[in-house]
Simulated assay, not measured.
Amino acid sequence: MSDLNPMATAPYAQNGRPFLYGGELEGIAQVLASGQYGHGDVTERFERALTGFLGVEDVVAVASGTAALHIALAVAGIGRGDEVIVPSMTFCATVQAIRACGARPRFAEVDPDTLCLRPQDVMEALTPHTRAVLPVLYGGRAVDLSDIRNELEQRKIAIVEDAAHAFGSHRGTVRVGATGDALTCFSFGPVKTLTCGQGGALVPRNPEQAAQARRIRLLGMAESSAERACSTTYHVEGVGLRAHLSQINAAIGLAQIAHFPALEAQRKELWRTYVAALDDVREVRLVDVDVHRSVPTLCAVRVPERDRVFAALRAHGIGVGTHYPPNHLQPAFHRWWRPLIATEQIGKEILTLPFHQKMTSQDARLVTTALREALR
């Protein structure tokens, strides 16, 4: 790779980067000038924008994707002693949200081609203690559990989707979050397809869930911020978190969502560039995100001698990553370990390539050239 001249500022030097369109600063400045930084009108405008974009009845904006998962599990009635089926191949935040509810993870296998849960993976992991299934929409790909939905409902098992990677993706003809069969959680963190700087949201299945989620995100208080400002008291109706989305973060999201169609096209094109450039590299196994229906968040491959390849690429300024080390092997979750042969093999091979909107097709081809050389 002696012909490469990477620089720290090169687009391929980072695995993911935020992408700003220019209107974010103006939106932030308006909020700062207002003197009202917490939950407020801008947050609610962002919620309405998300509702319209997704084609759903309601969206509850919160402080992070992790907070969305925590609140969604609580809304689904998950608590101490309950068991939640979750793939081990996910970011640790997914599992920490389960633990924050007092529940315990029941780790499950994934499809080696997509890194997503399949119905058979869920059924294999079920126990009499299972109260929820938490599929992770890896890379932006939708997960379809419709084949076992009736059985899950008969067992009173909720579905809570971790769609941190999948804002804007489709399942069938509707956007993820609009299927009506799950509590769906999104992340709007710094390197997600839609960023608020930091933030998240959940899509409830009915008005009761929406109201409960709104109470939890504001410390269990029944009244809104506007109602409390006009009263001498308020009512705390249950356990809650300080997990609202600030107007500063919501302003960033509002500026972002107007540009989503262009973002979607750019990310699909970048992913297809990677696919074409790696087509003849037999050592590389691409993780399929179903790009026709998905808005890709990352480009993941499986390679032999991953640690050696990772080190070689990082040494030459290529910002590869590892998404993710399997959670059932983590010290914090070791007590819930169970053998997951496919996941453990994936964990030794997974490599994520630089993937964000500041990259061009030429950048992607440079990365794949470097990958070919590292594999040799």
Rank of each mutant, 00 (worst) to 15 (best):
G139F: 06
D113E: 11
F91L: 10
V309L: 02
D113M: 03
L50Q: 07
H316D: 10
A158D: 07
E344V: 04
V62P: 05
T195C: 10
T130R: 11
C185M: 03
G189K: 07
V136Q: 03
A125V: 11
G347Y: 06
L313P: 06
G172V: 05
P112T: 04
A276F: 00
E223D: 08
R171C: 04
A33T: 03
C299S: 04
V62F: 08
S294Q: 00
L263V: 15
V239R: 09
D113L: 09
A222C: 04
L298Q: 12
S64C: 10
L145S: 06
S361G: 15
N327R: 14
A258W: 01
A276S: 11
A258Y: 02
N150H: 07
T51H: 01
L32Y: 07
A251N: 12
L329F: 01
F355K: 09
V320F: 01
M359Q: 14
A258H: 09
H244F: 14
A72E: 03
E269A: 15
F333P: 00
H356R: 05
H334A: 15
C299I: 13
D363R: 11
S225Y: 08
A163V: 06
D113Q: 09
G52F: 02
E161R: 12
E349Q: 15
F19P: 07
V136H: 08
L241C: 08
R48M: 09
G319Q: 10
G168T: 10
A277L: 08
G27Q: 11
I28A: 12
G79Q: 13
H244G: 14
Q120W: 07
F310D: 05
A164W: 00
Q209S: 02
R306L: 02
V133C: 02
A97T: 08
F333K: 04
A229L: 14
H235K: 15
A262K: 06
Q266P: 04
K192I: 08
L353V: 09
G199S: 05
A201K: 07
L115E: 02
I257W: 04
F186M: 10
A277M: 04
Q14P: 00
N5L: 11
I159V: 14
R118D: 12
I78M: 02
D121Y: 00
R338C: 12
E208H: 03
V303D: 03
L298N: 04
T232H: 14
L340K: 02
R228F: 10
A68N: 04
W336C: 10
L245F: 02
R267L: 13
D3P: 05
R214L: 01
Q266H: 15
A226K: 13
F186W: 10
A76M: 07
L254E: 09
V367W: 06
L183T: 02
S2M: 13
V60C: 00
I98F: 01
Q357T: 11
F46L: 13
A132H: 09
A277G: 10
A108F: 07
H129R: 15
L371I: 06
E349K: 13
E151H: 12
G253R: 03
I248Y: 12
R376K: 11
G180V: 09
A265C: 01
L54I: 13
Q154T: 05
A163R: 06
D144I: 07
A210R: 12
P87E: 05
R285T: 15
G38Q: 13
K268L: 00
F53E: 12
P112Q: 06
I252G: 05
G180W: 12
L69A: 03
A8Y: 14
E109K: 01
